[in-house]
Design a protein around this nucleic acid. Structure first.
Length: 975
RNA sequence: GCCCCGGUGGUGGAAUUGGUAGACACGCAGGACUUAAAAUCCUGUGUCUUCGCGGACGUACGGGUUCAAGUCCCGUCUGGGGUACCA
């Protein structure tokens, strides 16, 4: 019987679904193991071959852990709120809910085909009201909390109100309360607090709430009509859609993630995540330790406060730079400079994010005309304005030390400001010396010290003189939480007398209202405002009209899987205590500074309020590499007719093959020929032919050769296209390896492979491609290798006679022998079990498949079809290729699913050879190999080697200086 | 610029703590079976040299440590990812 994967796979998928083979039990004696995949956004393109890469890996681990006696939770769901469905709705009018449901159905169908062991009873969808009810509920908890710096955790806002009632508030005296000393909030007493009206109280509390409404500079994307978080912007344009982004001051819901900066940093040390990912988070949080320092403005009692990490270089300060947005800019500017400063500030404000990045090397700035006094020397130092200083970081002002900071250096060079060396070691003619090592000079009391010691002493001195104090700054910004979009969770807030109130728990979920259009309103209000006439709290109060960002639903979904259908709490405490946290989390590294930071933030918050016990969402995390697509390009001729009277529209569309792209004469001949048919004469003269390239659907391309007919039918305007082909008549496309995306027409779906070779082959092949964490382009060149491995395995069980049929021609009935295995067969088996176990434990799936292949090759060579060997082998293989192993297991006469069987243990005893081949080398050079009994000790091996004739011959009677026997593997003599 | 991770045959990639580099697979070449094809099986396949046995060289490049280096250290080149005026 042939290996009929289609029938086998659909049968077993039906069996697993019917018997709920992979449903996780909440509790029991077995140890728990939680394996989580990052759930997908269900896009219209369906699953591509990159999605299953991580899912297959996690599925292998899940199945393996079940074999090993763990109670495994392995769920899947959908991150189903998002922009593409909404953009589609704007274009077509189709409700995003319908689009999303269709896409989910397709994803589900594709996933089912691959044979994953998900517990589908626990499926979650972030756009389901039963789910986002709890996302809203968590938002309300965050809204109703503040961060207490002295207990270092979030607490209910009532505890803060109590403090206000009894002690009032004064930021000058008590910065433990706020955790945010930049906030200049007027002090008040307890009595005053009690006398404040509700609006005033609300406004004050807003400064402390962890979810707050605040005015801040946001990244505004006009094309998308919404604000974006920093991690949603790449290279100054929106990550989705690639639209320009501007900076804009807006009143926005935000999350005070900065309160957790230090804990998010510290938590990283406890996690088994890759160094590069932890490093990315550390950089994103961007902790820097330094000091604040006040510079008094000359002839004034006002001061400018700066933040610096290099207080040691304070004697090198030759100017002070303010950000254009700095509050003192206007008051500092002297009359002479007013015009220039105002022009500069206006220009800087209007520059978009992208322009700022483009001009990154352009140095701009303007002198205010004012001076500060140097706090130690008393010298007058000019105050400048420069847009290299960011308003949002530190104090928005820096002390410029051009000798030891490259940005200050360029600024000083450009404007001819003095450069004062205070640390020895660099060549200041050429560049600044930024390194934090060397001896201090020109620095009064710091002279002669090393940088490290000078920093300490400088801070000490600054604190004694009350000029400032040691301080820590973070790059991390609060996360903007509102989006002016339709397809997201409504923020459960309504406004009464201009005061925001959270909904009560029993009023949730606040369901997304229906709207007639998905666009913003004519006056720029978010789409939800379209429903506002009928969508009101208690029929009269406006709800918040912005919705939550994409990361809201994904910041806690791992908890919902623990208790996916609970209607009364977000998940039962007992179940969360049981499942705790994710043991293994697999997903893409593109979420390093977005999702993975937010989910850690929410986890820590929920722990602070005592809802959960885990401090971190996932113990171990693996980033699967990206599977890149192979894009193909066609090259379209650009007409450059100069002054010619010919109308370009009458000319044909011509595509030029890659190989002849630079052969001008060749192209010219063909162009002339083509134009003849149009009765057009090409204007004379030497000319080059420029082309523009664009992506062509890879389905029309085979080995870079374009299927011209298919291509012509692709789009209406290509119907009449002409092609300048290679000499051999082919049209060759350009090639590039890049990210798979619908817009590049290079998406490879798993469906074709599953159709042609089966899901088990697909699973093996995706793992066989290379290390899980490595990015690699998709190519199917080697797929026959893993497929024939499965066929070989099948044939071990189907043989007409003892000894096994090795040819397709003599395939017969199922035939497995009950005779005793030989020593070498046992060795093959146990060697394989050992290696596979080690491979899975260290997530090295590609090598384990190689080890299976070696095993099957050896058993085929030995003509081994013995039950005692094949059964354990099947169990080992079943996490990788579940369908074929289930089928063979059943045919061996077992009634239960193979996934319920214990994983075999290996026995070292079978692995020891009777004899070992010792390579004998002299000074590291291999001379000969010596076969000795395996039972010998290291000393005995040494003695045997020395007794040996060949050794004596090599040594010519001399004694070696030393003899090294390494790991019973190699003998080396040093002469 | 800064941070992180890589660079091994024609290709994808193996190589626990430094211990016989190139496992396994693809591709290629030759062969078997077949009227033929497909399928399957066998042999060879890092480079140079030799009819062969064998020998020499070989993990981006240049140094170093070591009896022994793909692996450790220093420098250079190079690919990928992250981040970008963060003071």
């Amino acid at each position: 019987m042939e290996y009929n994967f289609k029938e086998i796979e659909s049968n077993w998928q039906a069996y697993w679904a019917k018997h709920k083979t992979f449903a996780a039990k909440d509790g029991g004696d077995k140890p728990k193991y939680y394996v989580l995949d990052m759930f997908p956004y269900p896009s219209g393109a369906g699953l591509h071959v990159g999605h299953p890469l991580g899912y297959i890996a996690s599925d292998i681990v899940s199945r393996y852990k079940r074999h090993k006696g763990f109670n495994v939770l392995h769920p899947m769901g959908y991150d189903s709120f998002g922009l593409p469905a909404e953009q589609y709705a704007i274009q077509t009018g189709q409700h995003p809910k319908i689009t999303t449901e269709q896409n989910i159905a397709r994803y589900r169908e594709q996933m089912d085909k691959i044979g994953f062991s998900f517990d589908w009873d626990r499926e979650v969808r972030t756009s389901d009201p039963e789910y986002y009810k709890w996302t809203q509920w968590i938002f309300i908890q965050i809204f109703n909390s503040w961060y207490n710096k002295s207990t270092n955790k979030a607490e209910p806002i009532e505890t803060l109100i109590k403090v206000f009632e009894t002690k009032g508030f004064n930021s000058k005296l008590d910065d433990t309360l706020t955790g945010d000393i930049e906030k200049e909030l007027a002090p008040f007493t307890g009595e005053e607090w009690k006398s404040f009206d509700e609006k005033k109280k609300s406004d004050i509390l807003m400064n402390f709430r962890l979810a707050y409404l605040g005015e801040s500079v946001v990244n505004w994307c006009p094309q998308l009509g919404t604000v974006l978080a920093n991690d949603e912007i790449k290279d100054g344009v929106s990550e989705r859609g690639g639209y320009p982004v501007e900076r804009k001051l807006m009143k926005q819901w935000s999350m005070r993630i900065t309160a957790y900066s230090q804990r998010l940093l510290d938590g990283l040390d406890t996690l088994d995540w890759t160094d590069s990912l932890k490093e990315a988070q550390r950089n994103w949080i961007g902790k820097s330790t330094g000091t604040s320092l006040k510079f008094t403005i000359h002839n004034s009692d006002k001061t400018i406060e700066v933040f610096t990490t290099r207080p040691d270089t304070v004697f090198g300060v030759s100017f002070v730079t303010l950000a254009p947005e700095h509050e003192l800019v206007a008051s500092l500017t002297t009359a002479d400079n007013k015009a220039a400063v105002e022009a500069y500030v206006t220009q800087a404000k209007n520059r978009s994010e992208r322009e700022r990045q483009a001009d990154i090397n352009k140095i701009t700035g303007v002198f205010t005309g004012s001076y500060v006094d140097h706090p130690f020397t008393g010298k007058q130092i000019p105050i400048w304005i420069g847009d290299y200083v960011l308003a949002g970081y530190g104090t928005g002002a820096v002390m410029a030390v051009p000798a030891h900071d490259s940005r200050d250096y360029s600024f000083a060079k450009h404007f001819g400001l003095p450069i004062i060396e205070v640390v020895k070691g660099g060549d200041l003619e050429k560049e600044s010396y930024d390194a934090k090592e060397g001896i201090l000079v020109n620095s009064d009391f710091l002279n002669g010290l090393q940088v490290k010691d000078a920093v300490k002493l400088a801070i000490q001195e600054i604190e004694i003189k009350k000029l400032g104090k040691g301080k820590v700054n973070y790059r991390l910004r609060d996360a903007v939480f509102g989006r002016q979009r339709y397809w997201g969770e409504p923020i459960p807030i309504y406004y009464k007398n201009d005061i925001p109130y959270a909904l009560a728990e029993n009023e949730l979920p606040l369901v997304l209202p229906e709207v007639d259009k998905y666009l913003p309103t004519e006056d720029g209000e978010p789409p939800l405002a379209r429903a506002a006439s009928s969508w009101k709290y208690e029929g009269k109060y406006d709800y918040e009209h912005s919705t939550m960002p994409g990361w809201a639903g994904s910041s806690w979904y791992f908890l919902r899987y623990m208790d996916a259908h609970n209607g009364s709490v977000f998940a039962d405490k007992k179940l969360m205590d049981y499942w705790q946290q994710v043991d293994l989390y697999i997903g893409g590294s593109e979420h390093a500074t977005g999702h993975l930071l937010y989910v850690r933030f929410w986890t820590k918050f929920l722990k602070d309020l005592g809802y959960i016990n885990a401090d971190e969402p996932a113990k171990k995390l693996i980033n699967q590499g990206m599977i890149q697509g192979r894009s193909n390009f066609v090259f379209r001729l650009l007409w450059d007719l100069g002054a010619s009277p010919i109308d370009e529209k009458t000319l044909p569309t011509i595509f030029i093959s890659k190989g002849v792209l630079h052969d001008n004469n060749y192209i010219k001949d063909h162009v002339v020929k083509i134009l003849k048919d149009y009765n057009i004469e090409l204007p004379t003269g030497n000319r080059t032919f420029d082309t523009s390239s664009f992506n062509v659907d890879i389905n029309f391309v085979n080995n870079d050769i374009l299927d011209i007919n298919a291509f012509k039918n692709w789009r209406e305007d290509f119907k009449e296209a002409k092609f300048i082909k290679e000499e051999n008549g082919d049209y060759i496309c350009g090639v590039e390896i890049e990210k798979m995306s619908k817009s590049k027409f290079n998406v490879q779906t798993p469906d074709d492979i599953a159709e042609k070779f089966g899901s088990d082959t697909l699973r093996l092949y995706e793992m066989f491609l290379g290390p899980l964490e490595q990015s690699k382009p998709w190519n199917t060149n080697g797929i026959t290798g893993v497929h024939s491995f499965l066929k070989k395995l099948w044939r071990l069980f189907y043989s007409p006679v003892e000894g096994g049929a090795q040819r397709a021609g003599d395939v017969a009935a199922f035939n497995v022998s009950d005779s005793e295995p030989t020593k070498s067969e046992l060795k093959t088996l146990h060697k394989t079990i050992k290696k596979i176990t080690e491979d899975i434990e260290r997530f090295s799936f590609n090598t384990s498949i190689s080890n299976f292949m070696i095993c099957v090759n050896e058993l085929t060579d030995a003509k081994c079809n013995k039950r005692t060997i094949l059964e354990p082998l099947l169990i080992c293989l079943s996490p990788y290729a579940p369908h074929i192993t289930e089928e063979l297991w059943k045919q061996l006469g077992h009634n239960e699913s193979i996934s319920t069987v214990a994983f075999p243990d290996f026995n070292e005893a079978y692995l020891v050879d009777d004899s070992i081949n010792y390579p004998v080398s002299v000074n590291g050079k291999l001379k000969f190999t010596l076969e000795l009994p395996a039972t010998l000790s290291v000393q005995e091996v040494e003695a045997e080697v020395m007794k040996n004739e060949q050794t004596q011959k090599l040594l010519e009677g001399k004694q070696p200086k030393k003899v090294i026997v390494v790991h019973k593997k190699i003998v080396n003599m040093v002469v």
